[in-house]
């Protein structure tokens, strides 16, 4: 098994706040890693460090042996990292097919390609690929409607389709079910399980324990910037430290 992401000895301070405290983390290929922790534990900071948006004070982050720190989002994406946001970031004014064709194009053409010769109508291969992914996510019926008109759950589906059409090496999910109804949450979980079966490497940040325990292979628990526990879902569930720091809060 190869290591996809290797975070070693990362410290990050914001003024007086120790946001990350000597964090070590390894994500193996095909693994689904969940990062959980109470509010303000440093989950988002860690995620941003992982994709190079925040430069750590000390320590290093390697993605397939490559250092991502300080790179632009498009470079990170081209390196093979796709990202899902808390609120779905999609091209609301464009139709679903175009939404999925755009990432497919960037996968094929790179960060910039001055292509005014081709017609989108004749990009048959890109179109077929986009359509395939829309079908996979049950969105092919709506392929000609504007993405802005979708329901919250469908927007998330579309965003996932846009990420997966690029066949990323690592998928980052930042609270993928935040603000969703139970129904939408369940369908999203099903979707993520399906993606997991394909062997996609993922990092999930999530509040919803149902999501975490039904998806994760490995869970990392953060509290005040430090990892207080890690292991399989069962190990973490039974760890008294975790119950005290995090689960304890909820059961109280």
């Amino acid at each position: 098994m190869t290591t996809v992401l290797n975070v070693s000895g990362v410290n990050k301070r914001f003024g007086g706040l120790q946001a990350l405290d000597n964090v070590n983390l390894k994500v193996e290929e095909g693994q689904t890693l969940a990062i959980i922790g109470p509010n303000g534990a440093g989950k988002s900071t860690l995620l941003n460090v992982c994709i190079g948006r925040i430069t750590p004070d000390t320590g290093s982050v390697e993605f397939h042996g490559e250092i991502l720190t300080g790179k632009h989002p498009y470079e990170i994406n081209q390196a093979g990292v796709a990202r899902v946001f808390q609120t779905p970031e999609i091209f609301t004014e464009l139709n679903l097919l175009e939404n999925v064709m755009i990432p497919a194009l960037s996968k094929r053409d790179g960060t910039y390609h001055f292509n005014i010769i081709a017609r989108m109508k004749e990009e048959k291969q890109i179109q077929a690929e986009a359509l395939h992914f829309l079908e996979d996510f049950g969105l092919e019926e709506q392929r000609f409607s504007d993405a802005g008109s979708l329901s919250r759950g469908d927007k998330r589906r579309l965003e996932l389709a846009m990420c997966l059409v690029q066949h990323p090496k690592l998928l980052l999910l930042d609270e993928p079910t935040a603000g969703m109804s139970r129904l939408d949450t369940n369908s999203t979980i099903e979707l993520l399980k399906k993606i997991k079966e394909r062997g996609m490497t993922k990092i999930i940040i999530e509040h919803d324990m149902q999501v975490v325990f039904s998806l994760a292979d490995k869970i990392v628990v953060l509290a005040q910037g430090a990892i207080i526990a890690e292991g399989t879902p069962d190990e973490v569930k039974n760890n008294p430290k975790v119950q005290e720091a995090y689960l304890g809060d909820e059961h109280a």
Binding site: F85, T92, E93, E98, L105, H113, N115, A118
Partner: peptide, 21 residues
């Protein structure tokens, strides 16, 4: 063209555009 589609994507959502590569 694909170039034009990219321009429309910039108009629609710059954040996603960046994370699209």
């Amino acid at each position: 063209s694909p170039f034009g589609l990219a321009l429309k994507a910039i108009k629609s959502n710059q954040t996603r555009m960046g994370y699209t590569g």
